[in-house]
Design a protein around this nucleic acid. Structure first.
Lengths: 211, 211
DNA sequence: TAGATTGTTAATCGATTAACAATC
DNA sequence: TAGATTGTTAATCGATTAACAATC
């Protein structure tokens, strides 16, 4: 029940459960057994039951799991039942792309500001989001005036390190880090850091290529 | 020595070793011990030695590891000593951003084509890469005429599923998948699939946010 | 009721850590 | 040589799988 003891592997699988349950839901089904799910997702049914067991039971013996119920409970565990405000720091290609990415909002992640230190980008419109790029100088004020949970870091390494103090001071709750640094080693552990290292992902793929 | 038996966790850590060794290298150092590295990377020194042990030993008792040597050996393991040609399938924001992303080329990953099924995008220039968007109809010919290792999938789910047959037929070696489907369940296991599910990454972060 | 399927405990498997002889 | 540090084997820890009594 307490999220602090949940193994990392379990957390990793939760969004995938959520995705499959969403698909089952829109296919109109009502219930699913751990055995059904296990065949669909190529996991063992033991693992599925064990994973859910960490959060208490959501099923019913002899019946299985009610899809809507399990879907919404996993949503709650992932805090998708709340709205989260985000700022994007770095208005290069990647920052702009993520700001435009409509899927996030659908899960309650609302990007409400995008910042860069390049004056040439100042005031530029981002797609049809209605947002305009602001200068990094304005970030502290913006953080004071808005309730921001997550900062999305899409600036180069050096810039990322420089910005950390501001984020820590303003008690941001999480950092979604696309910069090639391990921020987790430089941030108090009250702040959650999730790294997306694209180059490293590509290297892992490269490793597995047959010759 | 045989890459098939290497635990997944070890593979995951290799690119990170590579990144740290690259930084040590450019800081001018010559050698590093597993103890030094362990403090830098917050891993146990046992784990580092055990990880490297999977590929044979690269160190020297009483000395440690020669940084240039270890860096280049890990590069070879990750196949970064070879050039890989890539095509991007899907010329939306994400596809264009990845195509522009200069870092990949630095590691030998060359994007040499970008495709979309939207006629409105046909012929559009991608940043300063010199590439122009081609229609998906042209993909099979392009795959025949060029030696492509990796396809980067940045199209929506449905499109991604439709494109798989073409990729399989043309014996692509790997798929870097940004679509919200688990392609690994639908592709022969001679083709490596690496998934980057951005929404799921964001959900994992969300889970860990303190209230 | 009988059959199905859960939650949960016990067994197995794999990965991480500890220890140390070998060696530079 | 003495000190440092490796490669590698053994011990520990954690995660996955198997089993089954409880229950709908």
């Amino acid at each position: 029940m307490n999220n602090n003891n949940i193994p990392k592997g379990v957390i990793s699988r939760l969004p995938r459960y959520y995705r499959y349950l969403g698909e089952l839901l829109s296919s109109g089904l009502e219930r699913v057994s751990s055995n059904d799910l296990s065949q669909l997702m190529k996991l063992s049914m033991s693992q599925i039951r064990q994973d859910l067991h960490h959060f208490g039971g959501f099923g019913q013996a002899g019946y299985g799991y009610n899809i809507i119920y399990l879907y919404s409970e996993i949503g709650k565990i992932l805090k998708l039942d709340k709205t989260h405000n985000l700022v994007v720091i770095g208005a290069g290609n990647l920052g702009q792309t993520l700001t435009n990415y409509a899927t996030f909002e659908q899960y309650g992640f609302k990007i409400i500001g995008i910042f860069d230190n390049n004056p040439a980008l100042d005031g530029q419109d981002i797609g049809n989001t209605g947002l305009k790029v602001q200068l990094l100088d304005e970030l502290p004020d913006f953080l004071n005036q808005n309730d921001i949970d997550i900062a999305v870091l899409t600036i180069p390494k050096q810039g990322a390190l420089a910005i950390i103090d501001i984020l820590v001071t303003h008690e941001i709750k999480g950092i979604w880090n696309f910069a090639h640094v391990d921020l987790n080693l430089r941030v108090p552990d009250t702040i959650a850091v999730e790294n997306v290292h694209l180059s490293e992902s590509l290297m892992r793929l490269s490793f597995r290529l047959d010759d």
